[in-house]
C-alpha cells in the first residue's frame, strides 16, 4: 500500500483485569481510507477500536501494553492528553447516543467545550456545515431546536456523526454504527461514510461482511483476540490467505 499510514499499532496487548482481550495486534491504517474491522462477536474488535482514542481509559480494570502511533506520536505516552487526542480522533457508537439536548446543542457541544467558534454566528455556521456534511440538514432544518432524541434512529446516528465532525477530527472511529438501524437508514449511513472518506480517516467495526465489503478499502479480521489477517478488502473477501478467515467468510465460524 502506497498511501500514508495514519495509525499504526505495535504489539498491542489489552487486559480486562486478568483476562487478556487482545494479543499482539500489529496493524497499519492508511490515511483518508475506510478500514473495516470484522470478526465474530467477542473477538476484540470493539476493544481495539476503543484503544485508538483511549476510550478504554474510562474502564478501571482495563490495561494496555504496546504502542499505538498516530502521526508519529505514541498516544499512550505520558505527554499525550486524552482530551486532545479525542478532539483529533472522534468516535461514533453502536447505539445512537444523542445528548438529551436540542439538535443544535448536540452539534454545538464539541465546538463549545473546545472553544472552536469565536462568535455565535461562527457557531451557527459550524453547526449548519456539520449537519450538511452529515447529510442531515435538509431533513431537520426546520426543527433544529427540537430535542435530538426526537429523531429517528438513523437520523440520530447521523446527528452523532455531525456532532463528531463539528470538531473537525482527523480520524473517525465507528463502532458498529448501523447495527441498531434498519436497512434503509443503514444505506444512507454507508453512503455518508463513502462521502466522509474523502476528508477523514475512518475505522469502522462491523459485524456485517457485506457492509465491510461495501464501504471499506482495507479489512482486518479479528478472531479470539488475535488479528488473523489484514489486507485490501477485495482481496480478503475473494482470496483470503488464512483458513480461519476463509471459514468466517463462508460462515463456518462466527
Amino acid at each position: 500500500m502506497a498511501e500514508k499510514i495514519k495509525i499504526s499499532t505495535k504489539k498491542v496487548n489489552v487486559f480486562y483485569g486478568d483476562k487478556k482481550a487482545l494479543e499482539n495486534i500489529n496493524l497499519e491504517i492508511p490515511e483518508k481510507k475506510v478500514t473495516s474491522l470484522i470478526g465474530p462477536s467477542g473477538c476484540g474488535k470493539s476493544t481495539f477500536i476503543r484503544c485508538l482514542n483511549r476510550m478504554n481509559d474510562t474502564i478501571d480494570i482495563c490495561r494496555i501494553e504496546g504502542k499505538i502511533i498516530i502521526d508519529n506520536e505514541d498516544i499512550y505516552s505520558k505527554e499525550i492528553d486524552p482530551v486532545l487526542l479525542r478532539a483529533k480522533v472522534g468516535m461514533v457508537f453502536q447505539k445512537p447516543n444523542p445528548f438529551p439536548k436540542s439538535i443544535f446543542e448536540n452539534v454545538a457541544y464539541g465546538p463549545r467545550i473546545h472553544g472552536l467558534a469565536k462568535s455565535d454566528d461562527e457557531l451557527d455556521e459550524l453547526v449548519t456545515q456539520s449537519l450538511v456534511k452529515a447529510g442531515l440538514f435538509q431533513e431537520i432544518k426546520d426543527r433544529i431546536h427540537e430535542p435530538g432524541t426526537s429523531l429517528s434512529g438513523g437520523q440520530q446516528q447521523r446527528l452523532c456523526i455531525a456532532r463528531t465532525i463539528a470538531i473537525s477530527p482527523q480520524i473517525i472511529l465507528m463502532d458498529e454504527p448501523c447495527s441498531a438501524l434498519d436497512p434503509i437508514a443503514t444505506a444512507v449511513i454507508e453512503e455518508l461514510i463513502d462521502e466522509l472518506a474523502k476528508n477523514f480517516t475512518i475505522v469502522i467495526v462491523t459485524h456485517s461482511m457485506q457492509q465491510a465489503a461495501r464501504v471499506s478499502q482495507q479489512t482486518a479480521f479479528f478472531h479470539m483476540g488475535n488479528l488473523i489477517e489484514v489486507g485490501l478488502t477485495d482481496q480478503i473477501f475473494s482470496t483470503p490467505s488464512q483458513k480461519k478467515t476463509q471459514d468466517y467468510i463462508t460462515g463456518k465460524i462466527g
Binding site: M55, T58, L84, R86, G90, F93, N97, F99, Y109, I113
Partner: peptide, 27 residues
C-alpha cells in the same frame, strides 16, 4: 444516567467535569 451518554461526551474530547456539568447533571 446511561454510560453511552458519558462515552459520547468523552469521545468528543470533553473532560470529566465538562461531561458532568453539561451532560450528566442536566440529564
Amino acid at each position: 444516567v446511561p454510560q453511552n451518554l458519558r462515552d459520547g461526551s468523552y469521545a468528543m474530547g470533553a473532560t470529566k467535569s465538562e461531561t458532568v456539568k453539561k451532560i450528566i447533571l442536566p440529564a
